[in-house]
Design a protein around this nucleic acid. Structure first.
Lengths: 337, 337
DNA sequence: TTGTAGGCGTTATCAC
DNA sequence: GTGATAACGCCTACAA
């Protein structure tokens, strides 16, 4: 793979390489005609500035690193798309890495990206645990970083988060108002801050509505459809069934629905179901799944804009953006009675 | 963001920069003790070789570019994961770009990646149309490229493809054997080679089973769930209903199922449904969706391995790998009668 | 307005 | 074994 360089053009036109370089960097004085000539022959020769060399000499890469827990997940996929859209208009390139929900791989990815000299990072952490120390150290060393989603609200760094507690509260409250009396919350992992916040919202709704303690429960389930199926099977077997499930996410909710239907429970008449992080599938299952929609696109956009600000104003003082959602009320939670 | 360089270490230890460099590149002679000393102090000082500089001097980036039509699609997400897994073990980094199903953006992405001096490209084209000329020109210029999925079998380049015709045939044949008499194939766009191949398989099955012409039809529908819904609404309205749908993909199939259920058709008793490109959701809808599973992971792995071969053996002669699928027989296509 | 030369952080080819 | 030194392709004072 041969690349035409600035030298080739200089030789071809009998000018110095600096002149050629200047032709491509508007900020310098150069006679318009020479400029034109250089650009034309460059075009003809198929020249394109080598970004590697440019990066090295400018000490700036115009690369932004993005690290997410997984690709196979509409939430992160949409966030990535939004980030790319914003950054591309500013001539940044986006390097995306996923870590398969492993905090170790996540750390490796971040290190790889930093060593590749990205100008900044957007990190959607898998956990808000130990890696944070390393990340915060990088911020101290003036590496612009913006966190998205699974971050503690108290964290002293720029971040884009969702008000999980509030929307968990609303979702739970909705179920109660629909007349469901015994509601179980299938939560993700307890070391996940977003899960904790949702549990808080759930419990707050229970308390505010004076639901007696024996009529609700939080069960650590996970984030996969099959985990939703297993727990439901289990509850049926143990004859410990609620009349509504508030699930950690839509896949879990769909697992629950699947098992309920297999056991001839009617949704929403016998049992209500509520998801979280509205997915495209929510409208396609029968009955349609009620879920909390998060503004993924806006969150990704905000993260990118926050990062751009940090990079261009060289001001790393932390900014937090908290986003609100929307309760997508659909059939699985609306009782006729 | 300050980076420690080879120079800092050289000064610190009173050795030359070449010695330091050698300590990090096993292939050169260097006294073990100096090596140890250098590595230790490098570690201490937080040094890490600057890959940009290395790339510039080696004229090799250890970056691989991947371009896909979209992220929000399990098929491509899984392919990307597989590609990453293979390449990471060989110390390559994977830069992924998506083009939102736009051939123009796809071309831009490829150019960006080539100009970023990737060592090779894996392209999952949106269309097999005009961009191909540009891509083939790059291959002539010794840029290693492997194509995945939406490529013509005849294309004279390295590629990983799925035997769409064969598996479309099997899927259709299955519907016929289940006693469905009037089958409509909801196809993607006609300028998509994979769609064309699936149509061919569908028609071949019809012919081999001597289904009369008035009992089958190919309808260009698209790839989205809502397109599946619309077409079904339309057919119901026009009273032109088949007794089985063979859909371009699972989302379309789920759109069809949704509309059918809303109109009280029983699946599979009244109407059978078959998807394609098995998704995780297929098992979660009711009834479970029958679909053709493609070996996405293996396809991604094969693409990465093909590319590695090309790069390391410096041999760009085209290799084609054709993959087979599996018919995931589930409830939407199995008649009790 | 243009050319010269040094630097960005490495690797690699020489001498010593 | 180790140390100069010239690349790699580009940018950018400074000089002309």
């Amino acid at each position: 793979m041969k690349h035409v360089t600035i030298k080739h053009i200089a030789k071809e036109l009998n000018v110095s390489i600096s002149t050629v370089s200047r032709a491509f960097n508007d900020k310098y004085d150069i006679r318009p005609e020479t400029r034109e000539l250089i650009l034309r022959t460059a075009e003809k020769m198929g020249y394109y500035p080598n970004p590697i060399a440019k990066k090295l000499s400018q000490q700036k890469t115009f690369n932004i690193g993005v690290v997410v827990p997984e690709f196979i997940n509409e939430f992160y996929a949409e966030i990535i798309v939004a980030i790319q859209e914003v950054l591309i208009t500013q001539n940044y390139q986006v390097l995306v890495m996923q870590c398969d929900n492993s905090a170790d791989i996540e750390l490796k990815n971040v290190k790889t990206l930093i060593h590749s000299m990205v100008d900044g990072l957007i990190i959607a952490p898998t956990l808000d645990g130990g890696n944070m120390n390393y990340y915060l150290k990088q911020i101290e060393n003036e590496c612009p970083i913006v966190f998205v989603n699974r971050v503690k609200e108290q964290l002293n760094a720029s971040k884009v988060i969702f008000d999980n507690k509030k929307w968990s509260y609303f979702a739970t409250d909705h179920l109660i108002r629909q007349g469901y009396k015994k509601i179980y919350h299938l939560s993700a992992y307890k070391d996940l801050s977003v899960a904790k916040e949702r549990v808080e919202g759930f419990l707050k709704a229970m308390k505010n509505n004076q639901v007696p303690e024996e009529n609700y429960k939080v069960i650590e389930t996970g984030l996969l459809a099959k985990e939703g199926m297993h727990i439901t099977e289990d509850l049926i077997y143990r004859q410990d069934m609620p009349d509504a499930f508030f699930c950690a996410n839509d896949p879990v909710a769909m697992g629950v629905m699947k098992t309920l239907k297999d056991h001839n429970y009617r949704i929403p008449e016998d049992i209500g179901v509520m998801g979280f992080t509205n997915t495209q599938m929510a409208e396609l299952v029968t009955p349609q799944l009620c879920s909390v929609k998060q503004p993924t696109y806006d969150m990704g956009k905000a993260a990118a804009e926050l990062l751009l600000d940090q990079i261009e104003k060289e001001d790393l003082s932390p900014v937090t953006k908290v986003f609100n959602g929307k309760l997508m009320i659909r059939n699985t939670s609306v009782r006729n009675a």
